[in-house]
Design a protein around this nucleic acid. Structure first.
Length: 429
RNA sequence: CGGGGCGUAGCGCAGUCCGGUAGCGCAUCUGCUUUGGGAGCAGAGGGUCGGCGGUUCGAAUCCGCCCGCCCCGACCA
């Protein structure tokens, strides 16, 4: 993509409305624009990251055997009356009426909806296990939205719902998602610590929230160093062992009862990016979602649900990966892999070389943002640092004369003068 | 929902206390010079001062009501 043809409204100064670093940087890098409190427009650069994050979540859900569907944002109130939540949910739920004065709501979550799908089509235990998920916008009318997309009112969330015949099956489904979550966050370069959360009405320790570590996180967390040594790439993950590892948020951490020896106890700040829980027949029972078992008896299906805050993750990633100059994207979620900088578009030799590199990067399928604008060098560097693409490939008049370009790593600030050919080899290899 | 604060050009702000025809920096446009870390000079454009009402000869400024947004706390992917 040529920057001269792109829409990247970067800000030189910090917007007054933003307090925390991810919010500031998202606004400054032209990723988002606020439309109302807690409601954001996603501009091209931000949208690309959102899609990258979404795609990783999708791939890991698919890999775990979940099936993607898409449920609507607007739901009828009657469905929520069946579970009793219409009255329970309170003001967080945005309630609307259609032209026929029927009560509707903008979904804050989809348990009722997915349970309805299930009960209308699934009759037998033989059709289980089943896990349906979707990635859809939610709305929760938070009293106080803040921190940009980290706590918006409208947010993109992946929510999966598992259906099993019995508790043993539900536990397997839960553990399956547990592992998928660890893989998902790890792929984005994040260390996610699963923490035992408030146990549901039925499940013992079958509720975990996933906190990622970032110095600016909202809550103080304590955890076993073993989490940092997790190898998710190979072999089996022992969920039983993992769920027994110690991890707690500030409120629950009790030094007196902490089983981790001091030298293995780590502490940090955490941002909650996922939450999974088992809730048994909480919805299936009142809503009549039943299956017939091998014994011919009809029983309510065992359920669990599994959320990941997709849009929140974009903010959380920036909290985890930034420095004083801007964002430092991990490659897996970077909006572009390479920022190609033509320092002097007015010089023929310099531009010829930069154009040629751009064509070759494109041909090789490398996502490249090509700064072909008339801006000055300093401004170009500042913008590249701000938007945080992993690699900066700098073509200047000096180097062009002697056939050299400069490759810089945003993360390590390492710089190397190379021939265009070897720079290309590094980026395409 | 309690407490605090802010709405003036695209962005960041001054002006409001003490009423008198709206200003600064950045950005934008034109020209010249410059050109490896947010350039210099000269010129230009851009405003229902959040909205409505009131007081006054006269309101960004004083009074009332409303709207929006931010921050701290109690709650949440």
């Amino acid at each position: 993509m040529r920057l001269s043809r792109y829409f990247l409204p970067v800000l030189k100064e910090d917007p007054a409305e933003a307090e925390i670093v991810s919010h500031r940087l998202m606004l400054r890098a032209g990723m988002i624009q606020q439309l109302a409190a807690g409601i954001y427009n996603w501009l091209p650069l931000g949208f690309r990251v959102l899609k990258k994050v979404e795609q990783i979540v999708r791939e890991e859900m698919d890999r775990a055997g979940a099936l993607e569907i898409l449920m609507p944002t607007i739901q009828p109130a009657d469905l929520w009356r069946e579970s009793g939540r219409y009255d329970d949910y309170g003001k967080e739920m945005l309630r609307v009426r259609d032209r026929h004065d029927r009560e509707m709501l903008y979904g804050p979550t989809n348990e009722e909806n997915v349970t309805d799908i299930f009960r209308r089509h699934v009759r037998s235990y033989r059709q289980l296990p089943l896990n349906l998920y979707h990635i859809q916008w939610k709305f929760r009318d938070e009293v106080r939205p803040r921190f940009g997309v980290m706590r918006g009112r409208e947010f993109l969330m992946k929510d999966a719902y598992s259906f099993d015949y019995d508790y043993a099956g539900a536990k397997r489904s839960y553990e399956n998602m547990f592992v998928a979550y660890l893989r998902t966050f790890r792929r984005m370069g994040l260390t996610a610590i699963p923490m035992q959360a408030e146990s549901g009405p039925i499940g013992g320790n079958m509720s975990h929230e996933f906190q990622i570590l970032a110095s600016t996180g909202e809550s103080q967390v304590y955890y076993d160093a073993a989490f940092e040594e997790l190898d998710l790439g190979s072999g089996e993950i022992d969920v039983e062992q993992l769920t027994n590892l110690y991890a707690a948020t500030d409120e629950k951490h009790d030094p007196a009862r902490c089983p981790v020896p001091p030298e293995r106890l780590r502490t940090g700040r955490g941002i909650e990016v996922g939450h999974i829980f088992y809730f048994g027949t909480k919805y299936s029972k009142p809503m009549g979602a039943t299956v017939t078992g091998p014994d011919g008896r009809e029983v309510p299906v065992e359920m669990g649900s599994y959320g990941i805050g997709v849009s929140r993750l974009v903010g959380a990633l920036i909290e985890a990966f930034h420095d004083e100059r801007g964002i430092v994207w991990p490659e897996a979620v970077a909006p572009f892999r390479v920022g190609l900088v033509n320092l002097r578009p007015d010089e023929a030799e310099c531009s010829r070389l930069a154009d040629d590199l751009y064509a070759k990067l494109r041909a090789a399928g490398v996502e490249t943002l090509y700064d072909d604008t008339e801006e000055r060098a300093g401004s170009k560097f500042a913008t590249m640092d701000l938007i945080g693409l992993p690699w900066q490939l700098v073509v200047g008049p000096r180097g062009a004369r002697v056939g050299l370009v400069e490759l810089r790593s945003r993360a390590t600030a390492e710089r190397q003068e190379l021939s265009p050919e070897s720079a290309l080899a590094r980026l395409t290899g």
